[in-house]
Design a protein around this nucleic acid. Structure first.
Length: 480
RNA sequence: UCCUCUUUAGCUCAGUUGGUUAGAGCACCUGACUGUUAAUCAGGGUGUCCCAGGUUCAAGUCCUGGAAGAGGAGCCA
């Protein structure tokens, strides 16, 4: 006898065939002679309807079948008499693998708040919503590897434990095996890390970029896709302490090729989701619309989820220099009427969230790529422009999400890089290996970082980043 | 880290001016119903009112401190 998953069964037409299916109960509806069980195994968002005829199955068996129980059903595949499905299974045997006591099982067949489900992250996979998000997340992982593989990129695993704390991307998590209560001390009273596991201070990585650059300067086109850790005390719906980042690095590529690559990658992923996860995206689209209905008019999204995705696919991203952005913002209504919390006075100011949102959501109403930022507000490794004021940085801003990509052309000139490190107090002795790549066969190269969970926010229409990663790590929260 | 808001039944929430025994819907159980679609209809009881202090004859309600969660800001991806 053939064993199928629910997704396969829903596509079968071999009526009369005896088949077996295993899964978890979504809902049970009973009447005097017959009961209906909606069964799901996670292979699709759709359920298979099990018909239990009490002339064939003892009705008391279903006393232990509630939402959440796990079952093995054997029965006959039939064309459904009901309206909402094409096929169903008329059970000849019902085996209960595990009950789910409804007094204790927290996932009821009703609407739960996302906050409640976050506190039950071990069980939230069982909901339609988190099943859909998990499948879309999987598809996006594949889309990314697929994209780069097709383009001849080499995937490189960069280290997760790093000996450098000079990457400048944020606060780091210390990795140590030293005893916390009585750490060994040096003569002048500081902690003696020479006795630590690695013989030096080590941390969890905040970015694989620097190591990816090393690989790019031999393999030309590489990317890393791995976990990243930031010990910032950020309590927002867009930040995680542990998140996944896609970081391509390309030799012989300038900032324009870098922007082309990022735009193409984002569009590829969005298209992939719409094509490969259409059932899940349909579900997420209607969830998104329902959520918008509950919001005040001025906070509602003008477009639906699928409309937003199509819009991104059909339009070129706006490419705009920092200097031009400042001009637009300075002459904007909210700036003149002093509606911004931070009024744009002139060139040099860092852009705040409200400014980025104005550009993306009000002025252009499209994804925007901002380039050529003042060097003072960007990292040491970014290539300096000839004007002596700006660097070849690029940030991609998405509606509702903000910065989804940050990247740059890298400074390939040894002397310029060294000078800039000095100016920005980056310890050069520690970074000797990074500098050496500029000494031996240096080439122009570029790369960027794409926040994987931020991409998922866009593709799923979810509003909180804690809901697009299975087990979110945030300040004061490492349960599960 | 800062600002604002929230915390009452398993879940979602209401609870008036501080005043008797703290309520509703869902879930659950029982019954009815020949095929339901988060089935429907009738009946059944459930509480550390987030924690610790304080004010008061009396606190879910007022005050102080704390914790957790959410939204926004900063940092960024």
């Amino acid at each position: 006898m053939e064993k199928y998953n629910v997704k396969q069964i829903l596509a079968l037409e071999s009526y009369g065939e005896t088949i077996t299916v295993e899964g978890w109960v979504k809902t049970k509806r009973g009447s005097k002679n017959v009961a209906f069980i909606a069964l799901n195994d996670g292979s699709t968002i759709n359920n298979i309807q099990i018909v239990v005829d009490f002339e064939i199955i003892d009705a008391s068996l279903l006393d232990d079948v509630h939402t959440g129980a796990s079952l093995k059903i054997t029965g006959e595949l039939l064309k459904s008499e009901g309206k909402n499905q094409t096929v169903e299974i008329k059970a000849s045997e019902v085996i209960i693998y595990g009950k789910a006591n409804p007094d204790e099982f927290p996932i009821q067949p009703k609407r739960h708040t996302l906050e409640f489900l976050r506190e039950h992250a071990h069980l939230r996979f069982r909901t339609n919503l988190f099943g859909a998000i998990t499948r879309v997340r999987h598809a996006m992982i594949f889309a990314i590897h697929d994209f780069f593989n097709q383009k001849g990129f080499c995937n490189v695993h960069t280290p997760i434990i790093t000996g450098s704390d000079a990457e400048g991307a944020g606060e780091m998590f210390r990795v140590t095996t030293l005893p916390l209560d009585i750490p060994p001390k040096t003569e002048n009273g500081t902690i003696d890390f020479s006795e630590d596991f690695f013989g030096k201070e080590t941390n969890l990585t905040v970015s694989g970029q620097l190591e990816a650059e090393l690989a790019a300067l031999a393999l030309s086109k590489v990317y890393t896709f791995g976990p990243t850790f930031r010990a910032e005390n950020s309590n927002t719906s867009r930040h995680l302490a542990e998140f996944w980042m896609v970081e391509p690095e390309v030799a012989f590529a300038d900032i324009n090729e870098n922007m082309d690559l990022a735009e193409e990658l984002l569009k590829y992923c969005v298209k992939y989701a719409m094509e490969k996860c259409s059932d899940d995206i349909d579900f997420l689209d209607s969830r998104f619309s329902n959520e918008q209905k509950g919001k005040p008019q001025n906070e509602r999204s003008e477009l639906g989820l699928k409309e937003q995705m199509n819009f991104v696919l059909e339009n070129d991203f706006v490419r705009l220099s920092y200097t031009d952005a400042i001009e637009i913002l300075r002459n904007s209504k909210p700036n003149k009427k002093k509606k911004f919390n931070y009024i744009i006075e002139g060139w040099g100011a860092d852009l705040q969230s409200e400014h980025e949102r104005y550009l993306v959501e009000k002025h252009f109403k499209k994804p925007v790529i901002l380039i050529d930022y003042p060097k003072e507000i960007k990292s040491f490794y970014m290539k300096q422009n000839d004007d002596g004021k700006t660097v070849r940085a690029m940030d991609i801003l998405f509606p509702g999400i903000g910065e989804i990509v940050g990247g740059s052309q890298r400074e390939e000139n040894y002397e310029k890089l060294k000078t800039r490190m000095g100016e920005m107090n980056i310890p050069q002795e520690e970074m000797w290996w990074y500098l050496e790549t500029r000494k031996f066969g240096t080439v122009p190269h570029s790369g960027f970082g794409l926040g994987f969970e931020r991409l998922l926010l866009f593709v799923t229409g979810m509003g909180n980043i804690r809901d697009v990663i299975p087990f979110p790590r945030t300040p004061k929260n490492a349960e599960f």
